[in-house]
Simulated scan of single mutants.
Amino acid sequence: MNIVVIGQGAIGLLWYHHLVQSTDNRVSLSCSSSISSAPTYYEFTDIEQLYGRFALNVADEIAFAKADVILLCVKSYQVNAAIEALKNKIPTNAVIVFCHNGLGAFNDFSTLKHTCLALLTTHGCKIKHPFHAQHTGLGQSDLGLIYGNISNSALNEITTVFNNSLPTVTSSDAIKEKQWLKLAINCVINPITALENVDNGELLNDKFQRQIAALIHEIIAVAAFENIRFTFDDLLKKILTVAEKTARNSSSMRSDILQKRKTEVDYINGYVVAVANKMAFLVPENEKLLQQIKALEIMK
């Protein structure tokens, strides 16, 4: 399978590293436009803390022209520009796989001739320095159709390739529900840990429970507008379980703030606020976190 991974961030390098290990795959990496000259190698520290330096196969025009799968691992606010750059470079039968945080990053699917999938992953990974990624936590991934049509055999083929590279990957008929679940978890863990500058596990502290509860009630109401049903107890349990399992991890939003980078808050809490506005429904906790994070971005 010909695969082009777009994005040299933590998740992009994580998937590139594991996909390229399979001799059945022809995998290349496309870097962001901010990279004037890509190195000839990348570095990777695996889950067992084993470090290695590996040859980097940078995507060229031929790689794009022959691509079967485009794995888009960019920040939410970079998605539109990335798609625009892709339109005339890839064949119409190429499948685009979106792998980013949040919702609402790209809504103009009617302009595409391509089948689009979403890949949701709970693996932990961080950038130690440019082109050096460290796998920090094992997780699992879900893959599902978000636009267009795909046969079961084609979806199973892509799922198998991804699963053989970085297990466990499961194809899902309920990818929208899983997207909303991930969004809900991120709406709580990301902004609070970024504002408090704490690891994820700190959210188990009693002092955060009132705020977490208020956020969950708002998310449940807004999700229902998109026909996604959550119960309070179930959602609370899932959020606290993630916080516990990733107790020593730094959320992506906290990392962005610490590294003085733009965050994805507009597509996380901002998405909840945007949907709530359509409903003429108030979500003061999400609105407050959205504004606090955006203010912190300016300060940094």
Rank of each mutant, 00 (worst) to 15 (best):
I146W: 01
Y267R: 07
H100F: 08
V4G: 02
G139Q: 09
L19I: 02
I127G: 02
F162H: 01
I158D: 00
E196A: 14
S251G: 09
F64Q: 09
N190Q: 10
A10E: 04
E202C: 13
L13V: 11
S171E: 05
G148S: 09
T40M: 13
V5Q: 08
V97P: 03
I220F: 08
L103V: 06
T241S: 06
A214H: 12
I298Q: 04
R53A: 15
V95F: 01
K176A: 13
K207T: 06
T111H: 14
F230V: 14
N249C: 14
K245W: 04
V272F: 01
I219S: 05
L236W: 11
S255M: 11
A194I: 06
H114Y: 11
C31I: 05
L72N: 04
A55G: 10
K260L: 03
I219A: 11
G104T: 04
L120C: 00
V161E: 09
P39S: 00
V222N: 05
L119V: 04
L289C: 01
S76Y: 00
A223K: 13
M1A: 01
L155H: 12
N25Y: 10
N156F: 02
D24I: 10
T122Q: 04
L120F: 01
V188T: 04
Q291F: 15
R53K: 15
Q179R: 14
V169A: 06
K66A: 11
K182H: 07
F106H: 03
E285R: 06
E84F: 07
N227W: 03
I257T: 00
V69Q: 08
H100V: 06
A65H: 10
A243R: 00
A214G: 10
Q8E: 13
S141M: 14
W180C: 13
S252T: 06
E264T: 01
E157N: 14
N163W: 02
L145E: 03
W180G: 08
Y267C: 03
A214N: 14
C99G: 03
E297W: 03
L235Q: 00
M253K: 07
E157M: 07
A81M: 13
L19M: 11
Y267Q: 04
F54K: 02
I228Q: 09
S255Q: 13
H135Q: 00
R254G: 06
V275Q: 06
Q209P: 11
S36G: 15
F98G: 14
D266C: 13
